[in-house]
Design a binder for these strands. Structure first.
Lengths: 231, 231
DNA sequence: GTCTATAGAGCGATAGAC
DNA sequence: GTCTATCGCTCTATAGAC
């Protein structure tokens, strides 16, 4: 697929993010000019929002003329669609891989939350666009992305249901709690600032602990229900 | 102040929201035409975002000509500023009054979260604009609103600190936990839909319970640390 | 594949009649 | 205080040279 990809295409072959390397390079977007434009769009959309960003601003950030954008993308919205699609695929993969990396519901939940939060803090520029500019997508693109988002909810609901089944979690409303946990993690992208008092790792650890407590897990730091306070 | 208020002014006299009546009528905004425009702007901004909303759309929703908007507001941004200011004052008041209505850190925390979440669900249209269109405010207006927002954080930090001092809460990072709790509550405005499976009251109750658990309170439903699981 | 130039549409805001 | 009409500008997207 490398070499003959059409402009703005995605190259999933080794060497890109697919091999587990740093995923903020957008290396899978080829050719290089399309990647530069996409990176410029991510920054502009995150800073000012989709509607307040002009195609001139994007092109200028990428060091190109206003017209150059239309060689690689049909419309401004297509640029947002690419960012949104790739970003959602990445965030769902982060969640899935963290879930698969651990055994036991509390360990899986902690790993998932830690990784998901870290991603939203470290990649907060991308995440802000991915999570908060959804509404600017065209109808069919919006539908496609919403389907991707549903995966995150299913993964989390699965972990909660498993923990309840084994008695490790005490959760009355699994669906509602899953929404709350996801909402908590996702919103990190809104308030996180690089150079703030906490690193993405620290926030990930803090949040993993908070969420274990939310689900009534005895594995929570400081001891969960029925564990701490004894003796 | 009633009667001779300049266009787009705010009337805090009895009969408006200040007396505890329903606060979505924006009754304190006078004259009536200014209120209709403001309500139309809230709906339009919530639906499409500030930058995607045209002044023609706002005026048309209010049943007026495009020019009528400028009799009551100097610019489109001033409309957002009014919404943002009044909305923030209301949400901070909801939080303050809930805090004052209860005694004891767990009770205060539960009341604050329940009321704050209920407000963000019930008034999700206003809340969406208030919480997610901040970035479109002009520089000095932005600074003013950020100062209002700080109050919410101080209130919450105060409750957490009190609970830690009395030993009712187990919280290592008060600042970080306060940010997390506020983030959780505020984000309700993003995902809440009228007609969904849960009422604002139900979400408020669910969230109050989740937050009590987050802070390690024994008053949490299902029993907190050192309470549930015994016997 | 990138440029300069510009078409064509829609925007925020204003002028002036009533 | 509200209207109709419109100014002046900026935007997305395209045309055509190189």
């Amino acid at each position: 697929m490398t070499g003959d990809a059409e402009p703005g295409a995605v190259d999933e072959s080794p060497g890109g993010a697919a091999d587990g390397g740093p995923d903020d390079s957008w290396a899978e977007v080829v050719p290089e000019a399309a990647r530069r434009l996409l990176l410029a769009a991510v920054e502009a959309f995150a800073e000012r929002g989709f509607h307040a960003t002009t195609t001139r601003d994007i092109a200028s950030r990428a060091g190109m003329s206003p017209a150059a954008l239309y060689i690689h993308y049909r419309t401004k919205e297509e640029l947002l669609h690419q960012i949104s699609r790739i970003g959602h695929e990445r965030s769902v993969r982060v969640l899935t891989e963290a879930d698969d990396s651990a055994t036991g519901a509390p360990e899986r939940l902690a790993a998932a939350v830690r990784a998901f939060v870290r991603w939203h803090a470290e990649r907060h520029t991308t995440a802000r666009v991915v999570q908060y500019e959804l509404g600017a997508l065209a109808g069919d693109h919006y539908t496609e992305i919403v389907a991707l988002r549903r995966r995150s909810e299913e993964i989390l609901r699965g972990i909660l249901a498993d923990g309840v089944a084994t008695g490790e979690f005490t959760v009355e409303d699994i669906r509602g709690t899953a929404v709350a946990v996801l909402s908590l993690c996702v919103d990190v992208a809104r308030w996180f600032r690089t150079g703030g008092p906490r690193t993405p790792e620290e926030i990930g650890d803090l949040y993993a602990g908070l969420v274990l407590r939310m689900v009534g897990s005895p594995a929570a730091p400081g001891g969960g229900p029925g564990v701490a306070g004894r003796g």
